[in-house]
Design a binder for these strands. Structure first.
Lengths: 244, 244, 244, 244
DNA sequence: GATGAATGAGTATTCATTCAT
DNA sequence: GATGAATGAATACTCATTCAT
């Protein structure tokens, strides 16, 4: 997590002063512009103009364009992780934890779309060292869900043979909401939480009655023998070991 | 779909000639470099070096850096759409169609990760006109799945109150595979198809036995006590009206 | 010599106060950093950091970066000139004066290498008006040696046909010591003074026995007839007129 | 000596073409401007304007501002060293070699003042790796003179107790000529060569008759009464060991 | 006496693109 | 089909300097 950055020092030193307000304005404008144009495509001139400064003056507030991105992404990830842990605190039942996680993730992503988008899309633009920090935080976050799935599977309430894969699948699905959700749409946040969480829970708890006949499902259907000479083994028989 | 581009002309004019080979090499190098560095971050000098040309010479093969991106993304989307339609042709049962779509999407995404990644990430970098073309193609692709879900819901085999939302959710989930899948991992493509498709089908067909007790689910759990009187209506009862 | 500068005012106003100490610290740090990086390459931010100030605060102590350099160089030159005159005061014999000058110059240059280096190297960085002042001081300093040589030649004790040229040659030679001398080396300052002064005196007093045969020297040797159609006249015959 | 640089490649590839002419023009303008303003103070915009280009276009001809400097300095040093060795080739008598070296050095420095000045002044601006290369070349050049002095001392024709120190002294003296020499001055190059070489030879061959009385010279004169008991040993008695 | 925020002009460098050859 | 020279505009970043507090 390294030493606090220029931005954070500026915030700490002069809370409430003009400097702190400028720092915050820069950060917000940064999020907005990176969201809109992408990190590479955002120029510091644009950013400076957005907050009413000369571009050189930005360097009072960060060392680097790169560090601005890192600050934004790392702070976001720490916030996400912290809030998720807080929401889950005290809940023990795996199903309840899964619903809580899902609801939290969705609400967070619907509320802070730009931050989320940046954190997902611009990891590529982070320098190695910075990316390592962010990826580690993301792994910890994914770990929360993976552990929920693993526990639920152990308890017999979830049918999840590959918790890691399921984790990726679920998080991708939930995160995807910020690719299309816009506030004020037809469906409320609550409704969307309900729908998505339903999908997640159904996926985790396994086949319902309608798919009882799914004993030998895919092979019968995947007509196109693309490079798939390898016949898929039946689900249950798959090893429960480790990482994909 | 606009007039054929320089690339296509070059391909057409000199099929088999050195020029066509160069054109193809440029395209491939372009995909590789955009995948690796991002469109904005890839320089034409890099690209030229990759195929052993001077950067000025690239302009025999495309009008623009922008057009190179557009060519790549549009061709990819047309390919994706065409292959999906081909795979689905002749299958009528909604469940079979859903499995087919899911399997196709997964296999395609595991096989052509770079193209897929670019098509998803670099839409932002397309100029308005180009983006419109690509977004339209993507809508058509999403439409395939949405129609499947809609049909299945009508037939009573799927429990999907919001086909559009479900479409986004499923596609996000499936597409997410190319964020972490690497060939040669512990799980084969077939196994992954099996797992993911299971999740999809479970999500579409609705609650399994394990979640029978899900009568008053989320409210009991969601920290935010948003008007807890408004009991979430049972799924099926939700209005089928329009877009989210 | 213009009005006293901010630095001098700051020194005068608050002798012994914190301000004077800061002023001196800035001066010393300035010498150190200009010596190390060069005037152009030294930034005022560096300088400020070195003395524990914000760069803006430096302007309480000088008008300009340029003036800081000028202050340093002019003060150095005045010091050099004053001390040389003091050392020579009361000595009349040309040979003794020559040895004194040489010894003084060497010791001064071995002791204050940074100042000397700056005064020699950064004249180029002075603005015209400032450079004129410094060059005038340097001329006066060179004049001391030239006059010694001229007097010694008149007295017949030196064999110097071109005092101006000899002055440049000797000063270059002596000053060169600060390009390589480092305190604590194998040879003491005294030893170096002895060696260098020997060279100076030998040069001034003319040919020793070993070079008796040097009547028609160079031509016989300089085989390569580079652009030298002009045969060099024998030394003694050269006109004693004016500046080279 | 590392791989040839962009500049050299440009020269090699297109001899006589416009590119080569531009390359040469850039080099010459670079020498001129660095000489005039110093490396740090010369901007690439100035340089580009001088040769009638946009500043970005310069990068066809060098990788870096730094590399331009390095190219200039290294090529100069290699040229200097090569020509000195060529001039000395075949001459064996130490006195003749000393005169040849002196004459060569002077003529070279009077002819290529800007290059020489740069090579001496801007070493500080070279990055470590580049400086190492240049310093090594300079050492080899100094080694030529040192070896001459050492040989002459062994042969008994020179009275030089410290060849290394004498080398520095002589080279400083000779090089100093380019601080004031301007072509077309009162004294011809030949005359100056004659004067300076006289000084060098006198210094190397030791005390002439006029300084016979120099038995206890310096102590009687040096103001600083540093332990005057330590009588300076007679020159010849000084240890011939190693580095200063 | 010192700060910290800001400026505005400057820096080296990179880029997509053009075009005569 | 390809080169190599060049452009012109842009980029991130640094600098000396100012000034209200």
């Amino acid at each position: 997590m390294a030493g606090r950055t220029k931005f954070q020092k500026a915030m700490a030193r002069t809370i409430g002063s003009n400097g702190a307000r400028t720092a915050e304005a820069i950060r917000q404008a940064g999020v907005k512009l990176i969201y809109k144009h992408g990190y590479e495509a955002m120029s510091l001139r644009q950013l400076a103009a957005e907050v009413g400064l000369q571009s050189g003056s930005l360097y009072k507030y960060f060392e680097n364009k790169q560090n601005l991105l890192f600050d934004i992404v790392r702070d976001h990830m720490e916030d996400l992780l912290g809030k998720a842990e807080a929401d889950l605190a005290g809940i023990t039942d795996p199903l309840a934890r899964l619903k809580t996680f899902s609801a939290f993730h969705l609400r967070y992503h619907m509320t802070r779309m730009a931050h989320v988008f940046i954190a997902n899309m611009e990891i590529r633009s982070l320098e190695d060292e910075h990316r390592a920090v962010v990826v580690a935080l993301r792994r910890r976050y994914e770990g929360l869900l993976e552990e929920i799935l693993r526990q639920g599977a152990e308890d017999g309430v979830f049918q999840v043979s590959e918790p890691k894969v399921a984790t990726y699948a679920i998080i991708s699905m939930l995160t995807g909401i910020c690719m299309w959700y816009r506030p004020g749409g037809r469906l409320s946040q609550d409704e969307l939480v309900e729908i998505y969480t339903g999908l997640v829970v159904d996926g985790a708890t396994g086949p319902g009655p309608a798919t009882a006949a799914r004993a030998k499902p895919l092979e019968a259907v995947a007509a196109q023998p693309r490079d798939s000479g390898t016949r898929a083994k039946p689900r249950a028989a798959r090893p429960k070991t480790a990482r994909a």
